[in-house]
Amino acid sequence: MNKKIAIVLIFSGIILAAGNAQDATAFLKQAESIMYPDNFYLVNTLVTTSPVKSDTSMTFEIYHRKDAGTLMEITEPARSKGIRFLQKDNNLWMYNPKARSGNAIRLSARGAFQGSTFSNNDMSDPNYSDDYSVTIAGMETIAHPELGQIECIVIEGTAKTKDTTYSKIKMWLRKSDHMPLQMHYFAQSGVLYKVMKLSGFKQMAGRLRPTVVAMESLDMKGTVSTVTIQQMTVRNDLPAGKFTESALTR
């Protein structure tokens, strides 16, 4: 009798866990679609502030096509203008037209992006559902600087492979519409080392989206990099050929 109860409980647990994962994945995908369309062009500014050094600012143009890749180009400051990055899956290339060589250099997508608290992958791959297995961790009310007290669904994700930038992520989504409000990033050692907060909610590319994304490093006390999206348009016409090495160096 006890065995039967145990089996029923185990199966129920498995079914509930599977259902939980399905819900979590659906919520995460919805949050991703709120942050960015599948295919887009955007202009953003990346500002890094630190208590120990002067602020830095960069402006980028970014093209993204789902399953094809991301192409980024620095447009400000003049010192870095024209430098381009191409990301395909976990592969990253950099091309500097001022180097007078037609070749792009392949880099790892894991490193920090241009001295900011964002990783290369944070900047160029807007999707987490490809890289993390997620579950619903519970409900929590957080204090949001722009929205006040907000009830959130908390989602936890563990890396599917060792190639991902973070070992674990934790995401707070507004319960009412799954708008992403906050994220925690954990190092391979399991230590929390970055906190991301989303704000500046505006109508952009056909829906309400966060346009200010601030990433705080807990390693470097007081260092925050903030991406502000100035312009975003849906671009379903971007050809796959735009996301190739030959296009990167063109």
Binding site: S101, G241, T249
Partner: peptide, 24 residues
């Protein structure tokens, strides 16, 4: 000058470098 007549083709005419090889 580069032309993109169809999404899967790019035609470059003129003086240019071509991205070739993988070393540093």
């Amino acid at each position: 000058i580069s032309f993109f007549p169809v999404p899967w083709l790019a035609v470059d005419i003129g003086k240019k470098h071509v991205n070739w090889g993988m070393g540093s």
